[in-house]
Amino acid sequence: MKTGKEKQLFPLVNYSFFIIISVIMIYPFWYVLMFSISDPNVPVFNSYYLLPAGKPSLATYEALLRQPMLLKSLGNTVFITLVGTFVKLLFTSLTAYPLSRSNLPGRSVIFSLIVFTMIFEGGIIPTYLVVKTFGLINSLWSLILPGAVVVYYLMIMAKFFRGIPESLVESAKIDGYNDIHIFFRLIIPLSKAVYGAIGLFCAVQLWNTYFNGVLFINDIDKRVLQVTVRSLLMEEAMTGDAGMGKVVTTQQNMKMATIIFTMLPILAVYPFLQKYFVKGILIGSVKG
C-alpha cells in the first residue's frame, strides 16, 4: 500500500510542476502584453515585465491604429478569413457528401485520388506556377482557392456524413426532394456541429495565413496581416537593437502591441475552439 508520505508528496510535486509549466506557457504572452502597455517614454532594458514599465498607457495602441498599412492588411485578412472559411466549408463538404454515399460509382477511386494529393504534394514551385497560370498572383483569391478542399477535413466530414442514416435521405427523395435540396435542407442542418468545428479551424488557419501571402502577393496593398506584421517585427530586429534609447524603445513597444493586436481575434474565439477541438481531433484520430 502507499505510504502516507508518498501520498502527500507526489501530488505536491505534480501540482508544482504544472504550475511551472503554466507559467512557462503564459509568461511570454504576459511579457509582450506588459511591454505593450508600458509608457513608451520610459526606456527600460532587460526588464522581466512582470508589470508594465512606467505608467500603463494605451498610447502605443493608439499609434498602432493610425498605421494605414496595418489597417489595410487587416482588412485583407478579414476578407480572406470570412470568404475563405465559407468557400472551404462549402467546397469541402460538397466534395465530402457524395463520397460518403455508398451509391456513388467509382467512389473508392475518387477517394484515393483525393487522398493521394495529401500524401504526395506537388511542391512549392509547381503550385506557384499553377496559381500564376490562372492569373491569381497578386489576388487575394490565391490565398483562398488553392486550398478550397481540405483533404483532412474532407475525411472528417465524410466520416460524419456516413453516420447519417441512408434511410433519411431515401425518405426525403420519396417526398420529391432532389439531391441539392437534400444537401442544403437536410444534411447541413444535421451537421451543424461539424461545420462549426471545422469552420473555426479554417478561420484560424486563414487568419494565420503567412507563407502563401509571401509567395503569391507582391502588391503591397494586398498584403495580409501576418506578412505586414512580420515586416514590422523584422525592422532592425537582426541588427541587434543597436541604437539604444527612446526611439528603439518606442519601436519595441510598437512591435509588442502589434503582436497582441494580431493575437486578439484568436483569443476571442479560443473558448469556442477549446470546446470543439477535442471533439474534432478525436473524430480525426480514429483514422490517422
Partner: peptide, 26 residues
C-alpha cells in the same frame, strides 16, 4: 494554457521570441 500556443502563428511567435530572447530587452 497548454493548448493556446498551438493556435498562434509562427510569425507572432517569432516576434515574441525576438523580444524575449533579445540581449537588450528580454
Amino acid at each position: 494554457t497548454l493548448y493556446l500556443p498551438h493556435f498562434i502563428s509562427w510569425v507572432v511567435i517569432s516576434g515574441i521570441m525576438l523580444a524575449v530572447l533579445s540581449p537588450n530587452f528580454g
